[in-house]
Computed example of a mutant assay.
Amino acid sequence: MANLPQSLSMNAAAAFGGPGSSSASPSAAGTQGNKDRKMMSAEQLVLELSNPDLRENALLELSKKREIFQDLAPLLWNSFGTIAALLQEIVSIYPVLSPPNLTPAQSNRVCNALALLQCVASHPDTRMLFLNAHIPLYLYPFLNTTSKSRPFEYLRLTSLGVIGALVKVDDTEVISFLLSTEIIPLCLRTMEMGSELSKTVATFIVQKILLDDVGLDYICTTAERFFAVGRVLGNMVAALAEQPSSRLLKHIIRCYLRLSDNPRACDALRSCLPDMLRDATFSSCLREDPTTRRWLQQLLHNVQGPRVALQAGTGFDHMLVN
C-alpha cells in the first residue's frame, strides 16, 4: 500500500478502519476529504496529459495548482506516459527556436510543461530519478537561444528555474552531473544577454556550483575556465554600475568570494577584480544588505590582504555598522 497514490492509500486505510476511516473527528474527516478531492483532481488532470486533445488545459491547471497538490511529483513520474508527454511538449517546439519563430502561446504552453518538470526536480523522491534520466539536457536548447523577445525570455527563465531547483539542495551528485554537461557556458551566455531576472537565476546556479568543492575545483582547474567566468562577472559588474540590481549584485559578490577561496583564483583576482567592487560605487545599492556588505569586505580582505582591504574599504566604513 505504500506504493499506492495518496488517494488510493487513504481509501484503503478507510476500508480497514485505519487513519482514514470514518471514526476520525468531523473536522479531521473534513480536512481529509478536501485532501482526497484535491488528489483525485490532480490524478484526473495527470491522466489528461496523455490525451493530446486535453493536454493543453491539463498543463495549465496543473501548473497553476501544483503547490496545493501534495506528492504531485511522484504522481507525475510514476504515471504511465506522463513524463513522455511533457518531453513531447518540449521537443515539439525545437523547430521554432532557430530561426526564432516562437509565439507567446507556444511559449506559455511549454513553460507550463517545464513548471511540472520543476516540480519533479524539486521533490526528494524524484530528483535523482529525474537526473539519472538526463532530462535536464532537453532544456539546454532553450538556454542556447539568443532572442530577447518575451516568449524566448520566458522560456529561458522557466528552464533556468528547473536547473535552479536541482542545485538548491546542495548535492554533490547533482553538481557533478551538471558539470558533465555544458551548463556553465549556457549559464554564462544567459548572464551576458538575459533579462535582469534570468541573469539573477543563472548567476545563482553558477554560485551554487561554485559553493560545492567539486564545482570550485572544476572552475579553477584551468585558466580558461576561470577567466571565462571572471570575464562575465566583470562585465555584469560594469553593467550594474549603470543599472543597479541589489539581488543580482549579491549573487555576483558571492561568486567572487567563493572564487577567492581557491589560492590560484584568489591570486588572479588581485589583478582582475573590478575596481567598482573596490571603491564605493555600490554603497547605496548595498546599504540595506548587511550580509552582502560582509561578503564584499571579506572578498577584499582575501584578495588584497587585511591592511589593503581596510584602505580600499574606507568607502564602506559607514556601511559596516549593522
Score class of each variant (00 low, 15 high):
148 K>D: 10
1 M>G: 13
71 D>V: 01
5 P>Y: 06
262 N>G: 03
220 C>A: 08
287 R>D: 07
95 P>F: 13
296 L>N: 12
117 L>K: 04
272 C>P: 02
253 I>Q: 03
284 S>K: 09
312 A>H: 10
256 Y>A: 08
28 A>C: 06
321 V>L: 09
121 A>T: 04
303 V>D: 10
214 V>N: 02
293 R>T: 13
230 G>A: 15
305 G>Y: 07
271 S>G: 07
282 F>C: 08
249 L>R: 13
151 P>V: 05
81 G>Y: 07
189 R>P: 02
279 D>T: 15
214 V>W: 03
228 A>I: 03
23 S>G: 03
24 A>S: 03
70 Q>I: 12
25 S>I: 00
187 C>H: 08
168 K>M: 05
170 D>Y: 11
57 N>Q: 14
7 S>C: 12
227 F>Q: 08
255 C>A: 10
146 T>C: 09
80 F>E: 15
278 R>M: 04
138 Y>G: 01
280 A>N: 15
28 A>W: 03
180 S>F: 03
138 Y>P: 02
35 K>H: 07
115 A>D: 05
43 E>A: 05
67 E>M: 05
195 S>P: 04
89 E>R: 07
122 S>N: 11
214 V>H: 04
226 F>P: 10
97 L>K: 05
156 R>H: 02
91 V>D: 10
217 D>L: 13
31 T>I: 06
203 T>A: 14
2 A>E: 12
321 V>M: 07
136 P>G: 08
35 K>T: 01
161 G>M: 01
